[in-house]
Design a protein around this nucleic acid. Structure first.
Lengths: 189, 189
DNA sequence: AACATCCCTATACATATGTATAGGAATAAT
DNA sequence: ATTATTCCTATACATATGTATAGGGATGTT
């Protein structure tokens, strides 16, 4: 719980009593390796703070093929944010790549607090803004860098992750085939 | 101004008196074809409602090459949103492809109203959320569809735009070379 | 210990797409 | 009207990357 508080304080420090109201809404939850936090096509009702473990977000392309949108590690927020906002089915899934510990919260319960706690709504605004900014920065990197560069960046952003997860997930994160990632790795030796 | 009000009401209808305070902050501005609304590397200080014309947002790749991130048509918000939020240099430029009419507003002036007008902050939250959602939906399409499909979608999303702007901009929007777009178009005849 | 499973690598081949270049249609300029 | 620009298309070629397949570590299972 302290980790979550620290995380939120970095975005916008809400009042102590607001935090008192908010924190009781979070529930401990466990995900086993392979479990889905949200399924593509499902309408999200909650999101969560990832305390421990690794989660992969991915789009699926109809037949087997998937595209890894993001890896989440400890200290991240997971959940179908767009689906929560719109109330429409999520475009992607989120699946635990390892056993995970999360603190999850019902989105409607959170929403119902905004009227009475403007500092919470400010936090929500800043969260949305920050989330937007990081997504856009990521977009820029995808567009401007080739797979070689993005692979090196992946290793910087997620130190140690390469040793934990299968390589074909990394390939799909980079937008290339496993064969191609293998070639890139070979080239870099 | 009425168009802007309608646009905002669709996101979140603020009180009439809040609107009275807000609207005086908007200033009429003209862009001539080729003018930049924001330059890559510049720190944004304002954003705008595009009343008329077409604006292209694009990343540049060091040497000449650019990647078209988005086309804005009448009724859109333009500006370096991430740069406004972070206070850091913009990662992309926005350039008028035609003569444009915009209503621009200073971001700090807007920010200073949030404390006194919670409905305005709610509007800001919802705007950020919506913007996030549409960016994510676009990401999904880029990842899941090939250039052929995205070309057809481009024509649906921006009816008539194809006739107004050079084809190499569309190609760069689709992430392919002009030659390749020409091949795609030929194939579809 | 033997076997099965998972998954990374390597090879060969096919193909999509980029680059370079030229031609020509359309538009703008003098 | 003539010329100059702009820009779309077509061609030929090079190359990066995907697909298909097989082999072999590594790890886990019985």
């Amino acid at each position: 719980m302290t980790e979550l508080k620290k995380f939120l304080d970095l975005i916008y420090p809400i009042h102590e009593n607001t935090w008192g109201i908010l924190k009781v809404l979070f529930k401990d939850e466990r995900l086993k390796k392979g479990d889905f936090f949200i399924h593509e096509g499902e309408i999200a009702t909650r999101f969560a703070f990832l305390q421990d473990g690794v989660v992969r977000a991915f789009y699926t392309n109809g037949e087997g093929k998937d595209y890894t949108k993001h890896f989440f590690t400890a200290g991240s927020i997971i959940g179908g944010y767009s689906s929560l906002i719109t109330g429409k089915p999520s475009l992607f899934s989120q699946q635990a790549l390892t056993n995970c510990k999360v603190l999850s919260i019902n989105y409607n319960q959170l929403l119902s607090l905004y009227d009475a706690y403007p500092d919470l709504e400010r936090l929500a605004r800043k969260f949305a803004e920050n989330y937007f900014v990081s997504n856009e920065a990521k977009e820029a990197k995808i567009v401007l860098n080739n797979a070689d560069v993005r692979y090196l960046e992946f290793r910087n952003i997620y130190p140690g992750l390469e040793q934990i997860i299968p390589q074909y997930h990394i390939a799909s994160y980079l937008g290339v085939s496993p064969t191609q990632l293998s070639r890139i790795r070979k080239k870099m030796t």
